[in-house]
Design a binder for these strands. Structure first.
Length: 157
DNA sequence: GCCAACGTTGGC
DNA sequence: GCCAACGTTGGC
């Protein structure tokens, strides 16, 4: 399975700088089955994660993070006061899962989407596909390596 | 703010 | 099981 991932966050909701402040966070609120399956089944402690800022101008990869805790039930799904409450999720048979991530480093330079699209070696990357909405997605090792090198983090691989 | 892409819901 | 309606994502 993949050892490399990308997660999307809207920077006005939860920016990478906030993750650095917090030291770690649980990635709650994901309500998509494909993304759920990745978090529940495939993400392992130590896997590396590109932290992508969506819905901003321009969208960009802000930093590198890693999985610090493997998939466990997303308790916000049965918290009636949470925006992420799901009446169909039963604590005895949780429907939604999350992982914990912690920050490693900022990208320098920041790699924005137009720049990524211009990189021939990244053609075919899921993130760059039209209509790709998945907020948790695997990244090919070659793509990951190229991105880290371009973002000044090649030494960390 | 627009709208294309896509996932989900629910009637049949 | 099909598919139209609807809601959301997210780039532009």
């Amino acid at each position: 399975m993949s050892k490399f991932w990308l997660v999307k966050s809207e920077p006005h909701v939860y920016p990478f700088s906030q993750l650095k402040e917090d030291g770690q966070t649980h990635w709650d609120g994901v309500r998509n089955y494909q993304a759920r399956n990745f978090m529940r089944d495939s993400m392992k402690v130590g896997d590396l994660v590109l932290f992508y800022h969506s819905n901003t101008k321009p969208p960009h990869i802000a930093g590198l993070a890693k999985i610090s805790k493997e998939g466990y039930p997303d308790h916000t799904s049965w918290d009636i006061n949470s925006n992420y409450f799901d009446a169909k999720s039963d604590p005895d048979s949780p429907r939604w899962f999350m992982v914990e991530i912690e920050p490693i480093a900022d990208f320098s330079p920041i790699l924005d989407l137009p720049t990524l699209k211009e990189m021939p070696a990244l053609q075919g990357m899921a993130l760059l596909a039209r209509g790709q909405r998945l907020s948790v997605q695997p990244v090919e090792p070659e793509h990951f390596s190229i991105i880290c090198n371009a973002g000044g983090l090649g030494d960390l691989l």
